[in-house]
Amino acid sequence: MLMFLLKRKRFLISALFLISLFVGSIFNTVLNDGEIRQTMIQTDEQGKILDKPPYPPFSVYLLGSDIYGYDLGHKMVEGAKWTIGVVLVVTFFRMLLSLIFSFCVYSLPSPIYKSMKMIFEPFSVVPQTIIAYFILYSVLWMPIDGFANPFWQRALFETLILVMIAIPNLTIHISEEIRMVVKEEFIEASKVLGSGKTHIFFKHIVPHVYEKWILLFGQQFIQALQLLAHLGFMLLFFGGTYVPYGAPKEEAPHSVSYEWSGVIGGDVSYLYSYSWVVLVPIGFFILTAISVALINDSVKAYFQTRNAIQFKSNGFREQAISEGMYRDPSPFSGPK
């Protein structure tokens, strides 16, 4: 599998981009203590002021600087571990928990299953962003006398909420797919031969649906990224929003870490005057999302070719197609 993927240029480039960003970010914290290059005011020898921040791109730094003179590219790299790391963790636990729940839920008798679906219905109508914002606001928005809880508690709570909020939809989606497989005849045959629930699940169901799960992981990654971006845009940053009460107006609420969505949300008012301050984090967001989409696409292509080869070598591909067994692994499944 790895060889196939490494041969595809789009996979290689996107994976390299994500990994180097992540590793670079961790190295920056470990070796450089999380410091970010800063140029306050540029002067010549006589002490005349030549330029002051924010510097546009390609002048002092490659990607320009923000209004305090911090190097934007460096800032993005430092923030990458938060954004990518958090989204990865959230996605992983979303998938894990909903797989476990689906395993418990898929074989329930139809009336109970239907009523469970009914209970989860509101979560598929009311958008995630609103629920997440509403629940997280009291914890992440700094009260007037400072935060009551340390950073790690707030971060953990936010991660937990971001995970839990997607579980209902995801569980229904996954268990629905499993129930489709359960209807097939070979499950019946296996039951007749005396296999238990666990055996059926791992030997017969998982091989049928695990490809979809892997693709679902990518989709959930993008969705979690989007959710984080929305929250950041509405000034609810990861790990808490520092609100400068009583401070001069220039100091807007800002993020505690250099997480990307926080940078966008904090500086969005500069979109028209110093547009690069916002455009650089937007660019990083878009590149990350596209990278994940490309990786997902490559993995899908791998599954498709592998299935085609398998069917061909077994000599019943035509028959499989005509019987509708040979399906596209995932046309566009998944809650968006």
Partner: peptide, 13 residues
């Protein structure tokens, strides 16, 4: 597929 993956906020901005 690629266009769809871009977060909507970014597109709007």
């Amino acid at each position: 597929e690629i266009a769809e993956s871009i977060p909507d906020l970014m597109l709007i901005l």
